[in-house]
Amino acid sequence: MRYTLNYLLNSGFIKKEDSEKLNTAHLNKPFSIYWHVRLVLYLGVTLLSGGLGTIIYKNIDSIGHITIVTLIGLLSLSALLYCYKKAPLFSVEKTEAPNPWLDYILLLGVTSFLTFEGYLQYQYDIFGTRYGLATIIPALFLFYLSYRFDHLGVLTMAITLFASWMGIAFTPKELMAANDFSELSLVSTGLSLSALLAVTGYFHSQKNIKAHFTFTYYNFALHLGAIATWGATVSFDYGWVWMALLIPIVGLGYLYSMKENSFYFLLISAIYGYIGVSYWFVQVLVLTDELFMMYLLFFYFIVSAVFGLRFLRKAHKKMTAL
């Protein structure tokens, strides 16, 4: 700051009084600990709900556990009631919580609700053997809460729960590891869920209902769609035909990135697209003679990556030109 200011002043690009004005603005700018407070709150909620979960888990067969479970239920209820009392009313626009505190109280309410509900199902079989109900009901409840209180974290949890109701493990870490996309049923579930999420996201932005949720829906849709396609490609006969499904997925991702100036979507679409195209080329190239193929392969990667570089830089220029 000071260095740039001195340079601009010494080169005569700005006037003395402007420089002083900027310097005071810089010195008066308060130091923001917003993210620190959020992190501490987040860690607090995580530890607390982890501790409560562990306590139930360890005491599941002992006498005192009814008390503990009741306490957790009450904790959840009071946290949610508190949110109802303090949070702004529902609006289709983005609503701001009056302070970070409320976001995390909601999170605490949600996690303790899930622990509570899970316990009831485990101990008393409230949903009987209809395990689906035990997932979809909390998922719907979480969807409701995320819209009511405008909370992206709860929305993400709700989508994850909803996906697990459909049979797909859907946290960022497990998307690749825990799903076996070599079964047709799982692939078609993944693709239809992806399409559903994309349509939902589109609906939100189009009707201007919580338009800022669109990103989250699209993000899940893009990753799930691409990975399901990839799984189908590597495990089925004529897999390369499945890869054609990437074209609409990546294309839509690209269009969205251009529309919203989202560099993240641009990068992700480009990576999935590049993997898809390379897969096709490699499939064709392995048909040729071995040594010749190696040369062609290296040649392909050089040329394609040069095109990739050009594409990314052009897109970047286009997006920053505004």
Partner: peptide, 13 residues
Amino acid sequence: GVQDAPSGFEGGG
């Protein structure tokens, strides 16, 4: 996140 949904028990735990 809550993955183990049918028993739901890992939730937060």
